[in-house]
């Protein structure tokens, strides 16, 4: 039998492990969030300052000196919103088809959908790049959105299909008896019921396009530069001593906070149910 004292020490061990891992995982993020509210000389005091008076100096500097950052932020918003709209438009029909209809073509097409998802993104850029250049699509929103949608359609279709499968087919039939046809039954009955699935798919593509580095790095230029790219460029300026660490911290925090908010709001969903989330790369 385990004594009470042993139980207490086991409990203590669990707490120590938990806090250690939380420190390792979240500590680095916390440090740059905190540092973005410090004046530059306080970021680098020899003994790190734990207690400090938060100031907005870095943010003010970012606003007054780096309007290109805010242009990039706008680009990221445009690209992310467009990609979300297209992913929903593309994937709902496919998911509905897989879940509710029948075709002999399902077997090869589902295999195809999963197979092409295995292609590493960067290799596709080798044959695509000359084509993109020839069509003068480089540095346009169109190509970024197209790439983001392409690399998320597989996962979104699977996700939406899983949600649709959980909606009982009796619901469709009931609606049909009540005088709906297939389309109106879908719009009035199924679509509202699958709203959580749509939100999940939108969250996935948003995180993907908001954070993407590789594609934006290869195809975006001066016009469509997204936030991760401008942050990398600002980091380069910091390395050359042309920019304060504080400024790049504040830019990073602005990029990070929306996604962090998603994680804190949706963590319950992430660890309960969408095991498909694990498949996201």
């Amino acid at each position: 039998m385990v004594s009470t004292r042993q139980k207490h020490s086991i409990r203590l061990l669990h707490w120590i492990l938990l806090l250690f891992f939380v420190f390792c995982a979240f500590g680095p993020i916390f440090i740059i969030i905190a540092s973005s509210f410090k004046v530059d000389r306080e970021i680098f005091t020899y003994v790190p300052k734990v207690f400090f008076r938060p100031v907005l100096d870095n943010y003010n500097q970012l606003i007054s000196e780096r309007e290109d950052f805010f242009r990039a932020l706008m680009n990221s918003i445009i690209v992310t919103v467009s990609a979300s709209v297209f992913i929903v438009l593309f994937c709902i029909p496919a998911a509905y088809s897989y879940s509710r209809l029948y075709s002999r073509n399902f077997k090869w097409s589902s295999f195809f959908i999963i197979l092409v998802r295995m292609f590493p993104p960067i290799i596709i850029m080798v044959p695509l790049y000359p084509v993109i250049r020839a069509l003068t699509l480089n540095d346009t929103y169109v190509i970024l959105v197209l790439l983001y949608v392409t690399f998320q359609v597989s996962i979104s279709t699977m996700l939406l299909k899983a949600f649709l499968d959980d909606i009982p087919k009796e619901l469709d039939e009931q609606a049909c008896i009540d005088g709906c046809n297939r389309l109106t039954a879908f719009i009035y009955v199924i679509l509202p019921a699958m709203a959580p699935g749509i939100i999940a798919a939108v969250v996935f593509i948003s995180v993907f396009s908001w954070n993407d580095f590789t594609f934006a790095f290869l195809v975006s230029g001066t016009q469509t530069k997204t936030t991760p790219i401008i942050i990398m460029e600002m980091q380069g300026l910091v390395d050359e001593g042309l920019l304060n660490w504080g400024t790049v911290f504040s830019a990073s925090v602005i990029q990070l906070v929306p996604i962090l908010a998603f994680i804190f709001l949706l963590q319950q969903k992430l660890v309960s149910g969408f095991t498909l989330g694990a498949v996201k790369g």
């Binding site: 995982a25 993020i29 580095f213 991760p228 980091q235 990029q255 990070l256 996604i259 962090l260 994680i263």
Partner: peptide, 9 residues
């Protein structure tokens, strides 16, 4: 879970 939400840059 937070680190997985951080962009590479």
């Amino acid at each position: 879970l937070a680190p997985m939400a951080v962009s590479p840059s």
